[in-house]
Simulated scan of single mutants.
Amino acid sequence: MADETHRLQLDWPKRYNVIKGIARGLLYLHQDSRLRVIHRDLKASNILLDDEMNPKISDFGLARSFGGNETEANTNKVVGTYGYISPEYASEGLYSTKSDVFSFGVLVLEIVSGNKNRGFSHPDHQLNLLGHAWRLFIEGKPLELISESIIESCNLFEVLRSIHVGLLCVQENPVDRPSMSYVVLMLGNEDALPQPKQPGFFTERDLIEVAYSSTQSKPYSANECSISLLEAR
Rank of each mutant, 00 (worst) to 15 (best):
L10R: 11
V18C: 10
I19L: 00
K20N: 08
G21N: 06
A23Y: 11
H30C: 04
Q31R: 10
R36A: 01
R36G: 01
R36T: 01
V37N: 04
S45T: 13
S45M: 09
S45H: 04
I47H: 10
L48M: 14
L49G: 03
K56H: 11
R64V: 12
G68H: 09
N69G: 14
N74D: 04
V79S: 10
V79F: 02
G80V: 08
Y84V: 10
I85G: 02
S86M: 05
E88W: 11
A90D: 04
A90S: 10
S91C: 04
S91M: 09
S96H: 04
D100G: 02
S103V: 06
G105F: 05
G105Y: 06
L107P: 04
L109W: 00
E110P: 08
V112F: 00
F120A: 02
S121F: 15
R135S: 14
L136T: 06
G140Q: 14
P142I: 01
L143D: 15
L145N: 06
S147V: 07
E148S: 11
E148Q: 12
E148V: 09
E152F: 15
L156P: 07
V159K: 08
V159T: 10
V159A: 06
L160S: 13
S162V: 01
H164W: 05
Q171K: 03
P178T: 00
V184F: 08
M186T: 03
N189L: 03
E190R: 07
L193C: 03
Q195N: 11
G200L: 05
F201M: 11
F201S: 06
E204Y: 03
R205H: 13
D206Y: 10
A211M: 15
S217W: 08
E224D: 13
